[in-house]
Every structure is written in structure tokens, then in C-alpha cells.
Design a binder for these strands. Structure first.
Lengths: 206, 206
DNA sequence: TATTTGAATGACCGGGCGGTCACAATCGAC
DNA sequence: GTCGATTGTGACCGCCCGGTCATTCAAATA
């Protein structure tokens, strides 16, 4: 990002950020069009490329902003993370959904950031935020003494489960748009599923 | 697909199918280029658009072919599906990975078909193959008498888990390319995780 | 008011896209 | 060998892309 962008009035900066965030969130990096971004932001194309030297740089800037918004929230939750794995998943999911409730635009951009996208962008994101993303580690310091099986198996299950949850949340957020209702419905379902995971599917043996 | 395509020598048809399948599998519908497809297939662009009236039609044709390849395999497995949900997941996952082993190209195209892609293509795929895809229903006829909680909670957990498994498999197949080894490693991990799901994470209460 | 100066603009560039079409090549019938 | 029909070809079309830059505009200085 160029200094000239930093010097811009806040309102104009906001318009540009919002337009770009929205476009990237909806279409992904490759599908996003700088023409649509400038039209939505109400600026000329020349200006956009004075503020940011390339589409890549604009995307990276938004990624930085998004991480700066999200990481502190996540860290504050993680600081108080319980050692029980199921509780941990519950709290983590709640943190993620809270981020969505507070700012859907950042949330959807963030989710898009983590998967599909051009290779060189993926690598740059990882170089810049890999450590911070690693911070969202669900597994360190878990109390595994009561696990029936190797901890790594448990972690694998949870990794898979979380991938599914992430996808479910992403789909939900593109349909339901009352954040309060969405959160309530989601947390209820998550609770029963976590209970299930903890105790297994079946009643204990006779 | 035009009749002129049907009349083509099998070897030429195969070249075109393989080139297109590969391109779509690698880049998705939007990212795929008909220019690269004709170059890889060794035909002219004019020919491709004589055989198929549009990129859309080519994609739909490949989807039909892929489904014709995959559905019978899935159905034969489903016919013998046990009523126990965990066994069922195991068998289903094995069926999917077997499809990958037998034909990686179809497999990756198929996986890409199910998510990312242009809207109108998604809808056409669902109109044509929605029912067949519904056939891969894991949940009908499950023995839920011993479930501790409502069946729908169990099914939700499994839906999430499967989304995670699907993603894991997709990532694995882009790194490891000895199908035999891949299958073995995956099935081992799947087994312990299924056991976990069945009995829960923790040892039974003291 | 005239002059300077930095920001804003949008026509324009080269390139890739999906798709077309006038023409060339090929083949079978006689 | 000739001729009509079918198939194959690639230059070309209009469009949109990311990115550039000569020009215009607006505000501060003198």
C-alpha cells in the first residue's frame, strides 16, 4: 500500500476497503475484478493503482487488515482455553461465529483466504500470517489422559470435524443473515454433536 | 455433444475427454481454458466447438460420463450397506477411495464438480444428477435404536465429519500419488477415528 | 489572478478468453 | 480423375482482464 492511500480521508479508505473486501469475498482472488472494485468504491482505476501497486498488493493489504481484526479476538479466547477438548471446540466455534456476527464481511474474506486462491498469494499469506494462524492451535495443552486411543487419532477426528463445521458455517452464512438467530441455531446443534463426540454414538454397553 | 463427436475414432475421443477432464479437474470450470484443452488434445479449436456447442456443454458431457462411471460402483456398494452407521461410513469411504485408485482423473473432476463452480453449471449438474447423488444417502435405513441422542444430531455429526474426510482425501490425492499406499494409510486412520466416534473420546466412566 | 503542484481520471495497452466462419483438406462415389 | 460432401483448421471477433500514463482538475502559494 502506498502512502497516498494512508493519507486518504477515512471515509474514502473505508469505501475502498469495503468494496474490495466484498468483491474478493464473493468471487475469490482470481474471479475478482479491479474494474468492479473501483466502480463500487466510486474511484477511478488510476487511483486504485496509485494506492496499491497491483491486485496482489491490494489483496495482501486486506488480508493484513483482516488478520489484525480477527487475531486479537481469537487470542483473547485462546488464553482461557480449557483443557477439555470438547469444551475447547465449543469455545473456538463460538469465537469464530462471533467474528462473523461482528463483521460478516471480514469473516467471509477470511474464510476465502484460507482455501481456494492463486498459489503465490497463498504462499505470501502463509509467510505473513502462518504463525498467527498456527496460534489457533486447538491441540496444544489438551488433557489427553482419559483418551481411549492415541491423541493423534482424536486430533485427526477433530481436524476433520472442524473442516466440516467450517464448511457448514460458510454455507449457513450465505443463506441465513440474521446473525443472532444464526448463532443460536448453530450453537445448539454444535452442543449436541459435541456431547455425542464425547460419549460416542451408542448407549454404554449393557 | 454433437453426433460428429460420437462418430469420432475412440482414440481421438479418449484424447479429448482426457485433456478436458484434466484441465477442468486442475483449474475448475471458470479457470479452465478451451485453448489449453485443444492444445493438449491435439485438435483445432474449431473442431472442439463442432463437437460441443459451448464450454458449458463440454463440461456437462464430462459430468455425465463421470457419473456414469462412478454411480454403478457406488450403487453396488450401497446395496450391501450395513445398518450400523460407523461400518457404513467405513465402507462408503472405501468406495470413494477405490474410485480414486481406479481412475484419479475422474475422481478429481468429480470432487471439483460437487463444490466450486459457476452457478448455472451447478444447477444443471443438480438437475441431471441430483437424484443419483441423493442415492449416496448414508442415512436411510440406519439402525438408530441404540443412539443416545436424536438421530438427526448423529447425522449432522456424520455430515460434518464426511465434509472433513472429503477435504482430507482431496488434499492427500494432490500430494501422495501411489494409490495403494494412499488407500492403506487412509483406511488405517479412518478405522481408529470411526472407533472413536462409536465409543466416544473418553474411557467409560469409572 | 496567475502559477505551481500533487491527486484524480479514463482512454488505452497487450493479452487471454469463449466462440465463429471462410476456407482447406480429406474421402467416397462414379 | 473428378466432383460433391463432410470434416478439420486457425485467423479472427468482441469482450474483459490487470495495469499505464498523458491529461485534467483543484487547491495552495505568490
Amino acid at each position: 500500500m502506498n502512502d497516498s492511500f494512508r493519507r486518504l480521508p477515512d471515509e474514502k479508505k473505508r469505501r475502498i476497503r469495503d468494496a474490495a473486501l466484498e468483491e474478493f469475498a464473493q468471487r475469490g482472488f482470481d474471479g475478482a475484478s479491479t474494474n468492479r472494485i473501483v466502480a463500487a468504491a466510486g474511484i477511478s482505476k488510476g487511483s486504485l493503482f496509485k494506492y496499491f501497486s497491483s491486485k496482489d498488493e491490494l489483496y495482501i493489504y486486506l488480508a493484513d487488515e483482516t488478520m489484525a481484526e480477527i487475531i486479537p479476538i481469537m487470542k483473547s479466547r485462546i488464553a482461557a482455553l480449557p483443557s477439555d477438548i470438547a469444551e475447547r471446540i465449543g469455545l473456538m466455534s463460538e469465537a469464530i461465529i462471533d467474528i462473523y456476527v461482528a463483521n460478516p464481511r471480514y469473516y467471509r474474506f477470511f474464510m476465502g483466504m484460507l482455501d481456494a486462491g492463486a498459489r503465490h498469494i497463498q504462499m505470501e499469506i502463509m509467510k505473513r500470517h502462518g504463525e498467527a494462524l498456527g496460534f489457533m492451535d486447538l491441540f496444544s495443552g489438551v488433557d489427553d489422559r482419559r483418551f481411549r486411543l492415541p491423541a493423534e487419532s482424536v486430533f485427526l477426528l477433530i481436524k476433520w470435524l472442524f473442516a466440516g463445521i467450517k464448511q457448514e458455517l460458510f454455507e449457513l452464512t450465505s443463506v441465513q443473515n440474521d446473525p443472532g438467530l444464526l448463532k443460536q441455531g448453530f450453537m445448539e446443534r454444535l452442543d449436541t454433536v459435541l456431547d455425542l463426540m464425547e460419549h460416542g454414538i451408542y448407549r454404554s454397553e449393557a
